[in-house]
Nucleic acid binder design. Structure first.
Lengths: 126, 126
DNA sequence: GGTGTTTTTACAAAGTTTTTACAAGTTGGC
DNA sequence: GCCAACTTGTAAAAACTTTGTAAAAACACC
């Protein structure tokens, strides 16, 4: 162990619409390949690697940009915006804004058209 | 080590209708997700962490707002109101007003349709 | 120098919190 | 029981904060 896996495909993330291979910096949205810039990848990677968790702005600015808490900038917002644009119609489902704190990536979650109460077996017994 | 701690999963509270994860700022009421603002979370957190206890207005204003006793404001009332609104029909069961003192959070307690005197074994013996 | 990327700037828009002004409810003394 | 004093509830507006956005400027790499 400890050797680099050569030609080992590690699909970093995959859901119904989106799959990402961070090693290859490759993202595919509904079978359509989308190209992300370096910073966009870094940002998306951090969010996706912590899917379901809120990541504070500070943490994003620290880990993607190396910025400390003093720095005031809109560059994070601008990048989030471009990411969302490239994620198309699902953007707001994927990248949530947590007001006053930061952002959260959520894996795709199909809308449920039927209530669970309606999904009951039909004529189970005799 | 050295890396920023991102997200700690501690399911803060749970009862029959309500469950709250304060870290994730996630509250679920009867399987429906409700979103609370920061102050609403802070307030609810303090109340819930002392469930069953009366918390004086002073204490709430001090610990959530940092206000001292001199300050006269209705902001606490307004926040309680919005919290109650978001807690829907159970609101008054959850958040009690203790007149002249403060508020108290009570975990959900199903109404009893039968008095304990009525709930006696039926024909236990022969 | 040209192309693509990132950051800044300067507002706009959206969201949150506090205040205001008054209504409604509660309590204790009579 | 009724009244006056006080407390809490409520709606709406105001004040404030955070995030979104477009465009330009700065940067980087070949």
């Amino acid at each position: 162990m400890g050797t680099l896996p050569i030609g080992n495909h590690i699909p970093s993330y995959r859901d119904e619409h989106l799959s990402i291979d961070f090693d290859q910096q490759l993202a595919i949205l509904d079978a359509e390949r989308i190209t992300l810039t370096r910073k966009e990848y870094d940002l998306l990677a951090l969010l996706v690697q912590h899917a379901g968790e809120i990541i504070p702005r500070d943490a994003l600015l620290m880990r993607v940009w190396g910025y400390g808490a003093e720095i005031r900038t809109r560059t994070l917002d601008v990048h989030v915006r471009r990411l969302r644009k490239k994620l198309g119609g699902y953007a707001d489902q994927y990248i949530e804004t947590i007001f006053g704190i930061g952002y959260r990536f959520q894996p795709y979650h199909a809308p449920r058209f039927f209530q669970s109460t309606l999904v009951k077996p039909i004529a189970l017994g005799a």
